[in-house]
Each structure stands twice: as structure tokens, then as C-alpha cells.
Nucleic acid binder design. Structure first.
Lengths: 354, 354
DNA sequence: ATGAAAGCGCTAACAT
DNA sequence: ATGTTAGCGCTTTCAT
């Protein structure tokens, strides 16, 4: 016996109506909790529903109302604990507000991201929260499409230049500056930065400040270099570090240079792990051979040896806020001012003196 | 201007049909890729669709076909990297097969899990993959409901006694035995085990072997104790370790005992981190004061000090297999025999001699 | 407060 | 190959 057959006999509003001896419309009103229904009818309908084990078909409901009560969430890599935490925040708020979460993975590629967006629009999600994998305006037509379709959109972690969409992100300038000052004051001059993002240029000027986290981070770095009157080396900003292989290649590149970096900043924990593993393979020690700073203050960073200097960000709270704001949009409510999410530099023993 | 207004003017099959000068049915056939359509009509319809920027409404499609091409995935805690990895495996396979993933969090409570299941059934998901939070048959009526509804179901990580549903899980007996032998041979006699699950009894006998991972793990432990002719202490099996507070209470309990445990096994990385933090707070050192073993071989376990002994499990592959099998079910294809997923004990320096 | 009937956007059945 | 006609299960007019 096939599964489909069984499913087809699920009771509908019409069945409940018949059982309760009322019209289909009236049963629907009672079941859906809208319109006016008398006590008597309500009771009879509920009893009938109970008896038939009726359960509403949300798809049919969405077809009429135009709302699916579903939020699409697209991240670069679900496996990344950073997004895991954000997702948890989003899911917690969404569920409490009666929204569901449809998951999408972009694999940090523009093509997959566009595909995920298309699929979600077709599924009639009410809004999309996305951590865009690219800051190239050319790669963001699909984001504009979301708005054109009349759906809500919030960016997470990363902004897109030229796209006027609320972005839930930390201002990294101060913390990046602080971390860089710590490295500079320890004598470091060549400081590398690795990110999984795709950028429009190999390095960015502060003019784009406030849009991409990389721009902010680099701006913070530049600021620190300027304060200490040291020349900034933009060539050490490395993008597309989105796989072990890519990272190994970058490390290769960095260390085959005449003057390798003496410090490295990893933009997330996956990159950090990959870098640390790669350093281990090459027999390089932290902080003796390379000082190390990473983004995200995960618990394990405190118990590794040496404990890692990190830039902490309130990821879970940001996830919650992203969900809260997009749901406010959907309900036409005022979300209020965007809170400041501050990143904090936490120095530990992974930074060595030169 | 409200969002809803804009959305209402999205082009439909009827619009495309009119534009292409064909019947609605024919346009639908061309767009949906079914039935027979002439070259000429296909081209005209596609051109019209392009021109109008038509995009199908998957909800409407699902209403007729009865299939939503959506898989529900319910885990205890999305934030847990174990599930993050599993989710990645599931999402990867699902997407390649044209399925979407609707996420649900159970918070390791039966009530939330039941709620998540109900919501997913209402949303007409084709199948559900779930890591059940409880092995009590009384808590699993909602799972039976899924099958009664004619939907596909796969259990992940944990089985439910009395529920004849395929479960994708590792057989932990061998690895738990191995880990326990390592601890016993190092002189340990009081070995605690912490899990976030809810069980029907405080400890389990091997009679339930093969169903819950806890049963398997405990069975492996018992086996090791028997081999070394040491009396097993069932009171050290601690369930419901699903929050920092709960874990702190358990540690309290364990160490206020006349004879505290000399070794501890954590059933997942979140528990492990929480325990390690708690031990740190109390000034207890691993392995001097407590030997430590945890499940899941995450990268950071190798670079902490001391490196942690772990029981590795192929989580990502299991996620992939779960998705593959449930999709086979949905398509009426043969999934083949369930592969053996073996857990491997990897001894590192977190086990001390007594 | 209630009911009849008309849709939502699509696919399916039955013609031709 | 194409068109016509019914639906899917629900909400929403519009009557009454």
C-alpha cells in the first residue's frame, strides 16, 4: 500500500462541518479562529474536529492568506558553529512568534545563494534572513528581487554596498583596532587576515566602512597601524578562505613569501581550526612562530593551549534580533532602533612578543 | 505602501498562458515540465514566462500533488555542533534531490518535540528526520502519528523502543567498551556518564540494547566492567544533562558523594564543554583529578590541553544517509541495507593513571 | 451569526 | 498535442 493513498483520507474542513452539522464556512471560522461563531457552533465544531482528529492544512491556508508564516534563513555553512548559534537565536524567536524556519545553505557561493533565494521565494516564505556570501553589487540582484517580490529581508553579519537593507551586525572597527594594537605593541608588523568572503577587491578602503565586516575590520586594522605609524600591508588580507584546501593554499602563499607574517587573524572558528591544523602540519607553533587572533569566543578557545586571543561577538542575541526585526516588519510593527552589538577583544596567550 | 499589495500582482500561469496565446493547461504543462508540449508552444510559453518574470507558486503546486518536497528535521539543539554537522549532511543530500529542509528544535523536551511534529505535519512535509529526545514509548505517540499520517519517518542518533522505524545511529557498544576498558585498566572504578536524554529509568539494562544509544553505551560499559570483573556502578549514569545549570547540579551531586567518580564520559561536546568549565570553576584538573572521555571527535578536542580522549562518530555521513534513505522511501525506491556506522575510541592524554 | 459561492495558483482527468 | 473542466483545502466576499 502506498503512502499517498493513506494520506488522502485526512479529514478536511468539509468533513468536520458535516460532522458538526454546520456549513463549511462556519466550521472554517471556528477552526481558524476568525469571523464570528456562536458558542454552540464553536463547541460542536471543536468536538467534531477532535473526533475526526482533524488537522489544518497550512498549505491551503497559506494559499488564501498569502502568508506562509515561514522565514527563510540562508547561511554560508550550517556546520559553522557561528551560524549554528545565530540560527538558534532566530529559531527561538521565530517559534515563539509562530513562524517556522526554512533552512538554506549557500556554501559561500553566489550561485548557490541565488538558488536558495529562488527556492524560498517559490515556497512563498514571508521573509528571508541571509548572511550574503558576496558583497559585490553584481552578485546581489537576487536580494533586490526579494524586496521587489514584496517580501521582507534582513542581512546578517554582512552588508551589501548599494543595497538599502537593514543589516544585523557587529561594528568591528573598535575591536579590530584593539586587537591590531595589541599585535603591533607586541612588535608585529606583518599581520595577515583570512576571511571566507568574496570581495570586490583584494583589499578594501575605509570608504566602504559600515557595509562589510571585512571593511570594518580592515579599517580598524588600518586605524591601529596609523596610530602606531606603521605602514599597513594590504596584501596580507586574504579572501575566499572557505575550505581546508583554500586555506592551505593561502598559508602556503603567506609562508613562501620572503617575509612571512608574524601574526594572523582568522575571521571565524572554522578558518581558525583549519589554520591551526595546517600550522601543526608544518610544525609551526603558536605563539612562537605565529601569533594568533580569531573571531568568536567559543568555549574551547579558552581551554586550548595556548588559550586563544579572540574577538567576541553576541551571535545568539544578534540572531534573536534579526528574527525579531523581520517579524516586526511582517506585522507592520515598529522594530525600534537597532541596538549596538559590540565586539570585544579578549587577549589571551596566543600573542607573542617579537 | 504595504508589502502584501505588491505581492498580489505576481504573474500566474494564467498570465503566462494569455501572453503566450495558449491555454492555461498547456502553459502549465510547459512550465511544470510534464505532459506533452510542442516545441513551438514550449518556446512561446518560456518566452512569455521570461518576459513576465513568472515564478511558480510551490504552495499551489504542492496542494495538487500532495507532495511539498520538504523534509522536516527536528533536533534537540541546533546550536549543538553534532547536529550542525548532521544537518549539513541532511541538507546537502536533500538539496541535491530537490528537497528543502524545515528546521525544528525540540530543546530536548517532549512537549516541544510534539509541537514541532504537529507543525510540520500541518505544513505537509513529506517526511521527518528526528533525533527523539525521549525513549519513553509514552512520549512517542506523535511519532506514530507521523506514520499514521502516511508520512516518512527516520530516527537519528536515538531509537525508540517499540517503534518500528529505521534508525540511523552508530553502534556504540564496542567503542564504549573500549573506552571503559581503557579507563578500568588505568585503575578507574567509579566512572560517571552524562547524557542530555530523558530515559524511562535512571539506568538501563542491556535488554534494550540496540534501541537507545545510552543503552548501547551502558551495555558497552557493563561489558567492560564484567570483563575486568569489577562491579558496575549504575548510579553514576546521569540523564537530563541538558543545560549548564543541570550539569552543574550533577557535578555537585557527584562530588558531594563520599566517593566521587575518578572518570567521566560526556555524551556530547556541549556537555563536555560545560563539564570542563565547571571543573575549572572548582579547580579540578583533567586528568589529575578526573579522567575525561567525550563523544564526537571535533577538531578542537585535539588542540586543547590535555588533548581529549574521544569516541569519534561519522556524523556528517550519517546525516547524508538519513536523508538518502528517507528520500528513497518517498520515491518508493529501495534504499539498500543500512551501512554500519562505527564509532572509534581515540585515546588521548585526558585519561590518567590511578 | 450563518450559509452559498467564488476564488487562491496550480495540476489532473477527460475530452478532442 | 491541446483545450476544457474539475478540483486540492482553505479563506473570503456577499448575501441573509
Amino acid at each position: 500500500m502506498s503512502l499517498g493513498n493513506i494520506r488522502s483520507k485526512a479529514p478536511t474542513v468539509a468533513d468536520v462541518a458535516r460532522e458538526a452539522q454546520v456549513s463549511k464556512a462556519q466550521a472554517a471560522r471556528a477552526l481558524g479562529g476568525y469571523g464570528s461563531v456562536s458558542e454552540d457552533v464553536l463547541a460542536r465544531v471543536m468536538a467534531a474536529a477532535q473526533k475526526l482528529a482533524y488537522r489544518p492544512n497550512e498549505l491551503a491556508r497559506s494559499m488564501n492568506t498569502g502568508r506562509s508564516n515561514t522565514l527563510g534563513v540562508i547561511v554560508g555553512d550550517i556546520e559553522n558553529p557561528h551560524f549554528g548559534l545565530a540560527l538558534r537565536g532566530i529559531a527561538d524567536v521565530a517559534r515563539q512568534a509562530g513562524y517556522h524556519v526554512l533552512l538554506g545553505n549557500s556554501d559561500e557561493t553566489a550561485a548557490d545563494e541565488q538558488d536558495a533565494v529562488r527556492v524560498m521565494l517559490e515556497k512563498q516564505v514571508d521573509g528571508i534572513i541571509i548572511a550574503p556570501c558576496s558583497s559585490l553589487p553584481a552578485d546581489s540582484a537576487h536580494l533586490a528581487q526579494i524586496l521587489a517580490d514584496g517580501r521582507a529581508l534582513k542581512l546578517f553579519d554582512r552588508g551589501v554596498p548599494g543595497l538599502a537593507v537593514e543589516t544585523i551586525m557587529v561594528d568591528f572597527t573598535a575591536s579590530a583596532r584593539q586587537a591590531t594594537l595589541a599585535l603591533l605593541d607586541a612588535g608585529h608588523r606583518r599581520i595577515a587576515y583570512l576571511t571566507s568572503m568574496t570581495l570586490d577587491k583584494p583589499f578594501v578602503s575605509s570608504s566602504e566602512l559600515g557595509l562589510t565586516p571585512v571593511a570594518q575590520r580592515v579599517a580598524g586594522m588600518e586605524q591601529a597601524f596609523a596610530e602606531r605609524e606603521v605602514a599597513f600591508v594590504p596584501g596580507l588580507i586574504k579572501t575566499r578562505a572557505s575550505s581546508d584546501a583554500a586555506i592551505a593554499a593561502i598559508i602556503d602563499d603567506l609562508f613562501h613569501h620572503a617575509v612571512p607574517p608574524s601574526a594572523l587573524i582568522a575571521s571565524d572558528s572554522l578558518i581558525a581550526m583549519s589554520v591551526l591544523r595546517e600550522l601543526g602540519n608544518r610544525g609551526l607553533k603558536v605563539p612562537q612562530d605565529l601569533s594568533f587572533v580569531m573571531f568568536d569566543n567559543f568555549p574551547w578557545t579558552e581551554i586550548v593551549s595556548p588559550p586563544l586571543s579572540v574577538i567576541a561577538q553576541p551571535v545568539y542575541e544578534m540572531g534573536r534580533e534579526a528574527a525579531r526585526r523581520i517579524i516586526c516588519d511582517l506585522r507592520g510593527e515598529e522594530a525600534g532602533v537597532m541596538p549596538n552589538f559590540d565586539a570585544a577583544f579578549i587577549p589571551r596567550r596566543s600573542i607573542g612578543q617579537i
